[in-house]
Amino acid sequence: MGKKVELDQEECIGCESCVELCPEVFGFDREAVKAYVLEGAGGEVACVEEAVTACPVACISVD
C-alpha cells in the first residue's frame, strides 16, 4: 500500500473496530486503551478504507 495511514490517538475512543477489520495495519495499546497504526504497516487498501468508514469518531485518515 503506497498511502500513509494516520490515526489521531487523542480522538480514538478505543472501540477496536479498526483492529478487528484490519489487523495487519492497526494495533491496540491495552494500557492506553487506544488504537495505533503499526510501524511499517502495509495492507489492502479496501481493508483500510473499511476501517476509516467504521470508525465512530472518524479519527483515521489516509493520504
Rank of each mutant, 00 (worst) to 15 (best):
C12E: 01
C47Y: 11
E10F: 08
E6L: 12
D29C: 05
K3P: 09
A35F: 06
Y36T: 02
R30Q: 14
S61F: 03
D29I: 04
E31H: 10
C22K: 13
I60L: 01
R30C: 11
V52P: 01
A32I: 05
V19G: 04
P56T: 01
E44F: 13
D29K: 08
L7K: 10
V57W: 03
L38P: 00
M1H: 06
E39A: 12
S61I: 05
E10T: 10
V57D: 03
L7W: 08
F28N: 07
V48W: 04
V5E: 00
M1T: 14
T53R: 15
G42H: 12
G2N: 14
G43V: 09
C15E: 09
V5R: 05
A35L: 07
L7D: 09
E16F: 09
C47V: 05
E39Q: 13
A35Y: 01
G40Q: 07
V57F: 05
S17T: 15
V62A: 08
C15A: 14
E24A: 11
L21P: 01
F28K: 05
V52C: 11
G42R: 13
E50H: 07
L7C: 08
F28I: 10
G43H: 14
E24D: 12
V48R: 02
A58K: 15
V25A: 07
C47W: 11
S61H: 06
K3A: 14
P56R: 03
C18F: 07
A54F: 01
V57R: 01
I13D: 09
A41Q: 06
E6K: 14
C12R: 01
S17E: 10
V52H: 02
K3T: 11
C18A: 11
C47G: 01
L38H: 06
V5C: 00
A58S: 15
V37M: 02
K4L: 10
V52Y: 04
A54I: 06
E6V: 15
G40D: 03
E10K: 14
E31W: 10
Y36H: 05
E16Q: 15
Y36G: 00
V45H: 02
R30V: 11
G14R: 00
C15F: 01
R30I: 12
A46Q: 10
C18H: 05
G40A: 06
C59G: 04
G42S: 14
F26L: 05
T53A: 15
K4V: 14
I60R: 06
C18T: 06
V48F: 07
V19H: 04
K34N: 08
C15T: 09
C55L: 04
Q9L: 11
E39R: 12
E31N: 11
E10D: 10
D8E: 12
G42Q: 12
G27E: 03
V25C: 02
C22F: 08
E31C: 08
K3H: 14
E20C: 04
P23V: 13
A51I: 01
C18S: 07
C18L: 12
A58P: 03
D63F: 10
